[in-house]
């Protein structure tokens, strides 16, 4: 199966390892990964700050880039959500309505794609230790991808998943919120890292680099010895080639 990867800007700039894991994982699962170079940011930072016009410029570029894709897969619940919104955003724009809707329909978050399109719910991988899963808000609530990552993680060997207190609460990232309302964001992430500390784990696993950058940045500041991993990295670990 041919899949087109949307790597997202955070992965492109800061988390190349997540992108690499995503590609390797998809390839091992039998997919042929295509990566159109015209891809850029999904427009969410501008869109969520109210800059609809400027965001649309970016969105159009992405729509063009992915016109030929069969499936667009991205290792981010938040960016997948943004792409799924394109259909609504351009609904009244004659020129772009059909194309944007087509992109929305064929876009999948990585674990959603693995479980619901590829039909795979167990991937032979190993990670020794205890972990909590951070349910990111966009992915869980708004995109509605709740069980898929948990299902996949439950089948990782040697990995013990533990509950996280107030898991449903936002970590305080919120894109530009984290720099616009830095003080509030700080309090939110501190509550999150406290819960993580109380859970007494080796890893925090998530499916959105934004949240992981936020939580990881705080854990590092607190010098907590907890490793932050994207789910693609976990599933790609110890998986035989």
């Amino acid at each position: 199966m041919r899949v087109t990867l949307f790597s997202t800007c955070l992965v492109d700039l800061f988390y190349s390892n997540v992108g690499i894991s995503t590609v390797e994982l998809l390839e091992k699962l039998g997919c042929e990964v295509d990566y159109p170079k015209g891809q850029i940011c999904c427009g969410q930072p501008a869109y969520n700050s109210g800059y609809k016009k400027d965001a649309k410029t970016a969105m159009k570029q992405l729509i063009k880039t992915f016109d030929d894709a069969e499936y667009v897969v991205t290792p981010s619940g938040s960016c997948a959500l943004m792409l799924r919104e394109y259909g609504h955003i351009f609904a009244d724009d004659e020129k772009w309505a059909a194309r944007s809707k087509a992109l929305s329909v064929k876009t999948y978050e990585l674990t959603d794609f693995i479980v619901n399109v590829l039909g795979i719910d167990s991937i032979p991988s190993t990670l020794q230790g205890k972990a909590v899963f951070h349910t990111s808000c966009h992915m869980t609530r708004l995109l509605g991808v709740k069980e898929e990552p948990k299902l996949l993680l439950s089948n990782v060997e040697k990995l013990e998943m533990k509950p996280l207190a107030n898991a449903q609460n936002c970590c305080g990232f919120g894109g530009t919120f984290s720099v616009k309302m830095g003080d509030i964001s700080a309090e939110m992430v501190q509550e999150k890292t406290r819960s993580i500390q109380e859970a007494d784990v080796d890893y925090v696993i998530g499916a959105d680099c934004g949240c992981l950058m936020n939580i990881g940045g705080r854990l590092k500041r607190e010098k907590q010895d907890v490793e932050v991993l994207h789910i693609a990295e976990v599933l790609n670990r110890g998986m035989g080639v």
Binding site: D12, S178, G216, R221
Partner: peptide, 18 residues
Amino acid sequence: KEWTNSKEFPTLKTSRFR
């Protein structure tokens, strides 16, 4: 600064993903 007041900002590991 709003970020680094409370958190570390990540580095670029090697090169861009692309």
